[in-house]
Amino acid sequence: MDWLFFAEVSLAGLATGGLYALIALGFVIIYKATRVINFAIGEIMMFAAYLFLSFAGGMQLPPLIALPLAVLGGTILGGVVEKVMIRPMLGESPISVVMVTIGLASILVGMAEIIWTADPQLLPEFLPRDPVFLGEIYLAPKIAYGFLIGATVLVLYLLYFRFSRGGVALRATASDQAAAYSMGINVRRVFNLAWVFGSLAASLAGILVSATGGLSPQSGAIGLSVLVIVIVGGLDSILGALIAGLFVGWLETVAGAFFGGEYRMLATFSVLALILIIRPYGLFGTHEIERL
């Protein structure tokens, strides 16, 4: 066993996991506020990454402008989706709403393929390229800086939810919709806000992930890993999303490096199966008591 290699792989995995955690956070925000499981979160990421490709690559905008523009694009997409597709489903069974997001995913993949073709592409370089060393351990710069940006945004999010008016409204709606509504919180706006914030996190993470891994219309499949993360962490737990995100990122990378790429999915889904058997509502999720 080469410990240095293991440490390098682990660190890279944890850094990827940080980005996963950011996406999972977006997912959990949407779920907590609206009780919608968003199967299309991976596709929203993919879409934002393509926007960045168009802005930075196609239009030659400097990355510092292209990045916010692309994130804005993904965010607007989320807001519009909520208005057009999710709101009409209010009060329908969760199954139906999930199927709407699956439909949305299918639409986004198709559109991405039509606009940007099915071929994998590389994002233009926009992060510093100097190698990063932690002691003796080498970390690829893209991953390191991606993690830094992701972690910063993550902390900002947590602060926002803790202290701002919008954050409080969001948490109130999450814990009791009817009560929040009767206290004068505009629940519809909160729903929209949740989708906007969720998509914002996903869009940013999407660009950062694609910067290292490349981009194709199928990139949204990363949504499957995110799904595993939120189930492991507990659908409605922000803490769970963070911890499970780091863990799953690490596990995938280590399994991939030591056993080969085909074991990545197997490893994550084994964890998923295990969790579903021993703790069906995730490590930190709340188990709702059933009533007659």
């Binding site: 597709m85 439909g103 639409i107 198709g110 039509i114």
Partner: peptide, 16 residues
């Protein structure tokens, strides 16, 4: 790709 879009639109459209 158009097929994917059409499938998606059908799913969403029928559900709504």
């Amino acid at each position: 790709p158009l097929l994917g879009v059409v499938f998606g639109v059908l799913i969403v459209g029928f559900l709504i």
